[in-house]
Amino acid sequence: MDHASLGWWGVPLAVLAGAIRVSTPFLFVSLGECLTEKSGRINLGLEGTLVMGAMSGYATAYLTGNPWAGVLVAGLAGSLLGTLHAMICALERVNDIAVGIALMLLGTGLAFFLGKPFIQPQAPQLPAIPFGWWSSSAQVRSALDINPLFLVGLALAPLLLWGLRTTRWGMVLRIVGESAEAARAMGYQINRVRLLATAAGGFFAGVGGSFLSLSYPGSWNERLSSGQGITAVALVIFARWDPVLCVWASLLFGGAGALGPALQSVGVTQGYHLFNAAPYVLTLAIMIATSSSRHRLAGAPAELSVTR
């Protein structure tokens, strides 16, 4: 069956495979952002974190020969940017949204600046796990060549949900996010909690970036991110700050992004620009449908500036 054509059946397969391939950065960024927002702060800078993670991960993998070291460094670079965000936001009169935009710019700029020497070289890639070994079809096998990072993301989501709901840490985080005053009265250090939440969120986003450069599409260049980081931030809002819903939302997005090319490969080439805008239209439509001007969104942390 090697190299056999799947015809129209290829479209759902490509959407499924695309969902898995394309969704991982969305997943990591949205999980990280979910954690940060639960503490009552929004970090729009994750777009910059993602790009920085992609660059630092690729550079590290190239220099050390170990892609997993790249993933780690990408995460650390991400938490560094997250820490910076949290430290500036802890100052008086500082708007977290503005700081996010600033870090988006700084992260992207630094990544482009430092990443110039790494556009050319090829770094070792993260190995994929062949879940499709049972299939005789090359396409199915390839679609099920799943990167371990995707699985880590999948496992992380219920873990985060559980952690937020039942652990002491989760409780503290949610109290800080719901009412800074109450948390202060209970003796918690709000800024420290938020710093940790933002640094952890940055770590996830950095790892998501390393997926872009070390797995799919698996190369470092300056056009690598087409707004995945910022879209993932929007995604958290319609996933209602629920890590497990973030998984579904990310998969939906990955699939929507794969639809355009998949349709074209079977001959539907009309209006491809509009197909390519599908993920953005989808996010906006879902946000319009699920928001309300009268009451707060279910699950929204009360301290969060975007929903106030």
């Binding site: 290829g10 490509a14 090319p261």
Partner: peptide
Amino acid sequence: VVFTGDWSMPVKEAEAANSLIDQG
């Protein structure tokens, strides 16, 4: 043929390449 819509779009290009390979 798959048109990506712009001159440099790495993720779309990878997705296009994969779709084409999936189509044989």
